[in-house]
Amino acid sequence: EGQSAEQLLICDPYAVFYLTGKLITPGERFLGLLLQKGRTPILYVNELFRFDKDLGVVKKYYSDTDDVTKLVSPDLDPSLPLAVDKTMAARFLLPLMEAGAASFFLNGSLAVDLTRSVKDEQEKAALRKASLVNDAAMDEFKKLIREGVTELEVADQMLAIYKKLGASGYSFDPIVAFGDNAADPHHSPDNTVLKEGDAVLFDVGCVVDNYCSDMTRTFYYKKYPSKEVERVYDLVRRANEEAEAMIKPGVPICSVDRKARDIISEGGYGPDFTHRLGHFIGLQDHEFGDVSTTNFRLEEEGIAHSVEPGIYHPGIAGVRIEDLIIVTKDGCEVLNHYPKDIEVIG
């Protein structure tokens, strides 16, 4: 209603799951949930994904040879605008536009995105559970670190550990970075061999009860870091903890990023903090909403997001420390309990 649209077509599988409780991953095929004022929702789904459960919607199945435009158009009011979400593929949207299926088309993603960004009690419980598993997994991952091991050898063992601890899988592919690779914020594990004195950065997450976790910790192998690396580490830890300390309802999200960024800048490493402070999280690891200098939304009870400052200076240090938080009535709950002290392993 806030977008002046009486019909909304949702194609994002996770948004459909959020609204119906049924997760369908259609691949390249069309999946759509049509919401219209005063009418029963309609779910369009390929025959390959037929199911019996009653979701409180009208189910309309189609085959691979059916025309999606002819499937959906009869249910639309061409005299009204149609809101669609940001994930609707152009190959489905453009034919609807060409057919005049609505008076005009607009991006209706915010209708679902803003709702999903504020977690209810069941969602909060799932996020806590996933982060507790991630804390336990971090302890296990450290045990994989030994002389001569490669990043890939470590990463390849992580999924089994997660599943043993009760997770259903990764929330994203794990980042394992040794030495100077830790100064690459999104390094992909490779055949780099661990050596004494290396940083060991784990950015890892899992899915438990359909909800995601995400945490980063930076360790050191066999040798305490140099004074400058220690200073870098302390800057990142301060940025993480002081940003978390200011989070409460009513605080502009952009000011949380600014707090962390100012600490790192005042420490002389501002240009080496190369990304936003965080991202929203829930059914997906990265959901709509971020913690950046351009997000002027106010923190709100129930919002869940990461706080992950980092300094990435090749030849000196690569450090990131990341927690997840849930905004509470008068502050925030930090979901990760794994220590943030400098830790030498191996």
Rank of each mutant, 00 (worst) to 15 (best):
G2H: 13
L33E: 01
D66H: 00
D66W: 00
D341P: 09
V72A: 04
K259L: 11
K163E: 12
V149K: 07
E147I: 04
V57R: 01
H186L: 14
K119I: 05
M246R: 13
Q284S: 11
K143E: 09
S292I: 07
L298E: 12
L76Q: 07
D323I: 06
S265C: 12
A160G: 12
V133H: 00
A137E: 05
D290N: 14
L144P: 03
R231K: 15
L80S: 10
V344D: 11
H186F: 15
D214M: 02
G346K: 09
I345F: 06
R128P: 01
L34H: 01
T328Y: 09
D203Y: 02
G250R: 09
S292K: 04
K119P: 07
V291D: 06
F17I: 01
Q3Y: 10
M138L: 15
L298I: 06
K163F: 02
L152I: 09
Q157W: 04
R258A: 13
D67R: 12
L94Y: 14
K22I: 03
L31G: 00
R297F: 13
A317F: 07
L235W: 04
P309L: 08
G166M: 08
H279Y: 15
L82K: 02
A102G: 08
G169A: 06
M88Q: 02
F273Y: 15
K163V: 05
P252G: 03
I253M: 13
L152G: 12
D341K: 14
V118F: 10
S109R: 06
R297K: 14
Q3M: 14
F280P: 02
V112L: 11
S117E: 10
A239Y: 11
D203E: 12
E242R: 09
N295G: 02
D113R: 09
M88G: 00
C11N: 15
K70H: 11
K227D: 13
E140I: 00
A130D: 05
D272T: 01
I345Q: 12
L201I: 04
S168I: 08
M158Y: 02
I161M: 12
C11R: 00
A5C: 13
G100H: 08
L159Q: 10
V154G: 07
V256R: 03
A101I: 07
F219D: 01
V207N: 08
F105C: 04
L283C: 10
E241C: 05
T216R: 03
K195T: 11
V204M: 11
